[in-house]
Write a protein that binds this DNA or RNA. Structure first.
Lengths: 270, 270
DNA sequence: CGCCAACTTGATGGCTGTCAAGTCAGGTGG
DNA sequence: CCACCTGACTTGACAGCCATCAAGTTGGCG
């Protein structure tokens, strides 16, 4: 069930140029599609220890349930929100995989991050009440919609929620600093090594294998994130494979030598 | 008055290797040096419209006064905090100019930002309760110390304060995205043009000339921030001067052609 | 089976890093 | 007051990393 209603969201790609239509559609998908049969419940969610409810008591989590109104499914290649959309909610990823990217007028764009289950999307919109980047699902995904005004309200009552939310925002700032470091000081192979180790680590935190995983993004998206061209990314993958650090087959990655990858970061030898 | 007590803070540079001594000094300077004669008062501060009190009513600002315990002077080249320091407070810059930077083991470092009066420092520490970067004054400066636990407490009572603080944090995230864009997609001259326009704009917002200002940082620090070597920064300055876009004399900058600088950003011609 | 997007690999060139030398400005001490 | 020193900056020559352009390969899907 609940597969067919999502066809409405298929407009996502074609609505790219009609901002008002896009606003409307977002409202509709939040209000009509997801509510009811997709009611979220933090108290029942197996991600609650790595998501917003972290550190809350049982009764407090129950109060979160009231706040997190609904879930929303986002199909692969469809937008969760776009730059310019009015900000109303943040989103907790329940399943799936997203990227965020920014476009500037002259056509250049950059992927600013990849997000996976348990992570929070949309905090860029708080400052101007307008989203400043696009969030696109890289595989069929599902998010919990957290109306921001309600979150602030509940944060004023539940100290642990307030504090944890602040930590989540701060973590985003620290993460961005790490990316700045990567883009500002590292060469191509170091960037890719750092990227692979980061992805690996995040998969581990979710109970998946640290050594073997399937990338959800293209070489071009990886390159955009790392400030490299897709050819350079591809060459670095090949180099790592030749060096026995990883085994690559398209998007399927097996890490053979984690200490070796870390060595790439530290100095510049193998 | 209040000039001599700061000699104690002169230890900042030599204490670099003694983490515990550093912790101690920070406590002392917050507790002993600044309190009393340097009592902060948001209600009296002419920066309140661009700082944390923004949007608060008069009585609410008065409550902020109780929260913002003390000011602290930080002399040029001295640290406000260091990576590894335990996080206890955020800081509102009352006067002066700061940089934040991150170091990694192998000696590489990167300037992650420049901060001026009215801006907030230290939010990187919230997530892990430990600062992740260093904050260094680039000129003799003064900050208001905002104990974070107290800020969270008051935020639970004053909705406008809570909301504005969230906006401030979000603004930091958006700013970082802009830097990622700069580092990931722009070439040297574009980066410098973006940097100059950004600095100019922030000076304007503080009532200074948009066209003429004094840079507080070295070419090397600019380069580190922009992911370039200092020689490249220097060459770009010279190029802009030849092109009649700016007049450079060491750190004194006069912008002659703002639209011209914006053109550098858009495409790649002059 | 054939198409197409994604990916790989090679050849070449340009931007920026690196190394080096020289200039400038400010501060110190004689 | 001036010589000197030092850190910051500028400028030049050269090299290397990565972008660019191009051609070919792979795998998925209609």
């Amino acid at each position: 069930m609940s597969e067919s209603p999502d066809t409405r969201v298929d407009m996502d790609q074609t609505a790219r140029d009609d901002r008002r239509a896009n606003f409307f559609r977002v409202q509709k998908s939040a209000g009509e599609i997801s509510i009811g049969h997709l009611k979220a419940a933090c108290s029942q969610c197996n991600l609650r220890e790595s998501c917003l409810p972290y550190g809350l008591s049982e009764p407090e989590i129950t109060r979160l349930d009231e706040l997190v109104g609904a879930r929303r499914r986002v199909k692969r290649q469809h937008h969760l929100y776009r730059a310019g959309d009015t900000f109303e909610a943040i989103y907790a990823i329940r399943s799936g995989f997203f990227k965020t990217d920014v476009l500037i007028e002259d056509g250049r764009d950059q992927v600013t991050g990849f997000q996976m289950a348990g992570e929070i999307l949309g905090m860029d919109g708080i400052s101007t009440e307008t989203h400043t980047c696009n969030a696109v699902a890289l595989e069929d995904s599902e998010v919990c919609i957290i109306p921001f005004a309600k979150l602030e309200g509940l944060s004023r009552e539940i100290e642990a929620l307030q504090h944890h939310f602040h930590k989540v925002m701060s973590r985003e700032i620290v993460r961005d600093q790490g990316v700045m470091m990567l883009l500002g000081t590292m060469r191509a192979e170091e960037r890719l090594a750092a990227f692979l180790l980061n992805i690996s680590q995040r998969f581990v935190a979710r109970g998946y294998s640290q050594a073997e995983f399937h990338l959800r993004m293209t070489r071009e998206e990886i390159g955009s994130y790392l400030g490299l061209k897709l050819e350079t990314v591809s060459r670095a993958f090949s180099k790592f494979q030749e060096g026995g650090l990883i085994a690559v087959q398209q998007r399927h990655i097996r890490i053979l030598d984690i200490p070796g990858l870390k060595t790439v970061l530290d100095h510049r030898g193998y």
